[in-house]
Write a protein that binds this DNA or RNA. Structure first.
Length: 360
DNA sequence: TCCGTAACGGTTGAA
DNA sequence: CTTTCAACCGTTACG
């Protein structure tokens, strides 16, 4: 799909509940966040599922993950984690080699075990060590930036918190038709495309995207749905609302972002735990404002509970969700008979679902 | 009816 | 540059 996609086709499919999703891709952060927030308001998962039009399996998964890790973010997709040849291992191999240039690969292997660098489960094979020697350490005199960059964080275990690594191809739309118009966007800098990148033009598309997202009808209707996946995704990402404190659920942040822009550092808590960030290549969205996001950490490892990290600067237009759902309470309200009317807050207001679009 | 989870088809990105 | 491969995704269906 990458190359080009049929523009008219919507990017995304519609699930049984009428929600739009992109197969293989994570739900937009804004929706993920909304799921968590609604759950915290006491809304049952099944209701959340219906309201947001996200499969219950997904709601269940996101909530479970949130409970476990404290993060609403999806895990890192793609790439391959350094399995045995972690930077630390490479570093050690290099050291062994430097101190004894004639050392055999099997000897290195034994030393890695002996020194506790690796255990029997993750020690590289002799052939791997040979490859490392050949490919990464071949010329000891060279600085080898690879390591320097990663190595640091590498074994730390905790280093990964970052924002979701969505990398996003910034290539805006290949098609160019719609977006082409504003080429300004930086393709170059992969990172940040998100937040800053979205000046106006995107906005529109975002909106479309968004709407489409939630409202299938819109999609179809809008032939435009211009933003193809990428944009879409960007939307998503960007959309990350911010609020933090899950408990408190302050939407203020969100609102804020609705206004666009504000970097909301707030979402940190939600975001934080996300998985690692891939190399710093795309940097992760350093947000507009933020520049936080230190490139350095990425680390593989399952996410951990630690979380809060200022990472976030994504720009978000949280708005995304808003429109879609607007929570049609209709359905539910009618049936309110449920059990506890959990919503003290009124769903509608929950997130500020107000659609800023119109106003602003 | 609700919810956890496996299967499935998909995307991604490091190696 | 292309291919592999392992990670994750959300939906669906089942129990």
């Amino acid at each position: 799909m990458s190359l080009y996609s049929p523009a008219e086709q919507t990017y995304g499919e519609v699930n049984q509940l009428g929600g739009v999703f992109v197969n293989g891709r994570p739900l937009p952060n804004a929706i993920r966040l909304r799921i968590v927030e609604l759950a915290q308001l006491g809304i049952r998962p099944c209701d959340i599922s219906r309201q947001l039009r996200v499969s219950h399996g997904c709601v269940s998964k996101i909530l479970a993950r949130y409970n476990e890790t404290g993060s609403i973010l999806p895990g890192a997709i793609g790439g391959s984690k350094p399995r045995v040849t972690t930077p630390n291992v490479v570093k050690n191999i290099r050291e062994y080699k430097q101190s004894d240039p004639g050392i055999f690969a099997w000897e290195i292997r034994d030393r890695l075990l002996a020194d506790g660098v690796c255990d029997k489960y993750n020690v590289p094979s002799v052939s791997s060590i040979s490859r490392i020697l050949r490919n990464k350490i071949g010329n000891l005199s060279q600085p080898n930036q690879y390591e320097s960059s990663k190595q640091a964080s590498a074994q730390a275990g905790l280093s990964y918190n970052h924002i979701y690594p969505y990398s996003y191809p910034n290539t805006m739309s290949p098609t160019g038709t719609k977006m082409g118009s504003h080429p300004g966007v930086p393709v170059t800098a992969g990172h940040m495309s998100i937040s800053r990148a979205w000046p106006s033009a995107h906005t529109v598309s975002n909106i479309l995207g968004i709407r489409a997202f939630m409202d299938p009808a819109a999609i179809t209707g809008a032939e435009g749905y211009g933003p193809k996946m990428e944009d879409w995704s960007s939307v998503n990402r960007a959309a990350f609302p911010a609020s933090h404190t899950v408990n408190g659920i302050d939407k203020s942040a969100i609102d804020g972002d609705i206004k666009y822009g504000q970097p909301s550092s707030t979402l940190s808590s939600y975001v934080s735990a996300c998985a690692y960030s891939p190399t710093n290549q795309y940097g992760v969205y350093s947000g507009p404002a933020g520049g936080y996001v230190a490139p350095g950490h990425h680390h593989w490892q399952p996410q951990s509970p630690t979380l809060s990290h200022p990472g976030g600067g994504m720009g978000m237009h949280a708005g995304e969700i808003q429109s879609p759902m607007t929570f049609k309470h209709q359905a539910r309200e009618g049936t309110q008979r449920d059990r506890k009317p959990p919503t003290p807050l009124n769903l509608n207001s929950v997130h500020g679902l107000n659609l800023p679009t119109s106003s602003s």
